[in-house]
Amino acid sequence: MKLIPQKYLHFFLSVIFFSSISSCNNRTKKTSTNIITSFSGQSISFSEMDQFLESQMDSIGIPGLSIAIINDAKIVYHRALGLKDVDTQEKLNEKTLFDAGSTSKTPFAYLALKMVDQGILDLDTPLYTYLPYPDIAHDERYKLITARMVLSHTSGFPNWRFFNEDGKLDIKFTPGTGFKYSGEGFEYLADVLAHLKNIERNDLQKVFEKEIAIPLNMHNAYYVWNNYVTKNRASGHFEGKVNPGWGANKKKPDFRASYSLQTEAVSYAGFIIGLMQEKGLEKNTFDEMFKVHVENPEEEEGEDQDNRSWALGMVVNPTIYGPFYGHSGGNLSFTCEYQFSKEKKIGYVFFTNSEFSTELDEKLVAFLMKK
């Protein structure tokens, strides 16, 4: 599975601020005012936002959308719009699941850090001491790789080995000395976590449910597929036609730390709110998760990161309002974005069953700036 290229992992929230508004619960009920406040302090009604999203979906060509907006660490606006499948014309509902792509990495990073707090994993202990990795044993440098390196993309692993001419896993630079976005590292770390818990890898789903999904109100989220996922998952679309995408599909229902999460906006927003409120981890562990580990890196190919830095499992975008955290996800026929300010307790997350999250993100920010 090829994820969204790094150049598309841009973050536009440097110019966005949703000011806090009055009370709302953490699910899908409307607020008493039905108002979102824009960056300029102007009010946006729910009907205006509805009209904007529907018009953009139509003009961009997005079949289905699940979106949640967070103010004051609460979900103040949520919609499930459009079609689950263009062939069947079945409409989305609030239970409809989307392929989260690379945004799967952030909850997995939290899970790894939970095991740090429990004394099971150490961020700076070489992973091979927990579990040797035969696929890369030919390169002794792999014995330098730690969980911290994996979560900050400094392990030296490629994104995916199948992009190499020989299809074999290699190390692009001495671990800890450079930056390269890598799904391979996350998958190795998933094997390590399962080994340390003395469970099968797919049983990490149960650990995820206990440690993250239940306590952080991520009620509708699955790394491992089941009958519920199969029934409620949207169909992916590419160029307006149903397309299974590059990654998670019915033939690959196993736990994949880097891309297999199936979820929707309200559930993922619950997780974001948990991060905002520092729920579930020790204070010093949250400090490690949110601090910059790699500042404004360049990819090996010379591709710049648009002034984005990396925390653990998240991008950090510096702004005049303080740091914004986020990640993009893409699996050809599913794309998504989340962004939030921990300090301001604001943000948003959306999932689409199309290739057009970047286009929608640009239009959404422009709309909110004008109001």
Rank of each mutant, 00 (worst) to 15 (best):
I75E: 08
G82K: 07
G82H: 07
G82C: 11
L83C: 12
L83A: 12
V86G: 09
D87M: 12
T88S: 15
K91C: 00
L92H: 09
K95A: 12
T96P: 03
L97Y: 00
D99R: 02
G101F: 07
T103L: 09
S104A: 03
T106E: 02
P107R: 08
F108E: 06
A112G: 03
A112H: 00
K114A: 15
K114G: 11
K114R: 09
Q118W: 07
D122M: 07
D124E: 13
D124A: 05
T125Y: 05
T125D: 01
P126E: 13
L127N: 01
Y128Q: 10
Y128W: 15
Y130C: 12
P132Q: 03
P132V: 10
Y133S: 09
I136K: 04
I136V: 10
A137K: 14
E140W: 10
Y142G: 14
Y142L: 13
K143R: 15
A147W: 07
A147C: 13
R148C: 04
M149L: 12
V150E: 00
V150K: 00
L151W: 11
H153P: 02
H153Y: 07
H153S: 10
T154M: 01
T154Q: 06
P158K: 09
P158M: 13
N159C: 09
N159V: 09
W160C: 04
W160S: 04
W160K: 02
D166Q: 01
K168C: 12
K168S: 15
K168M: 14
L169F: 14
I171G: 10
F173M: 13
F173V: 14
Y181F: 15
S182L: 06
E187P: 06
L189W: 11
A190G: 10
A190Q: 04
V192N: 03
L193K: 04
L196P: 00
L196E: 12
K197S: 12
K197A: 14
R201M: 07
R201A: 01
R201C: 01
D203M: 14
L204C: 03
Q205E: 15
E209H: 02
E209A: 03
E209Y: 01
E211K: 01
A213L: 13
M218R: 11
N220Y: 04
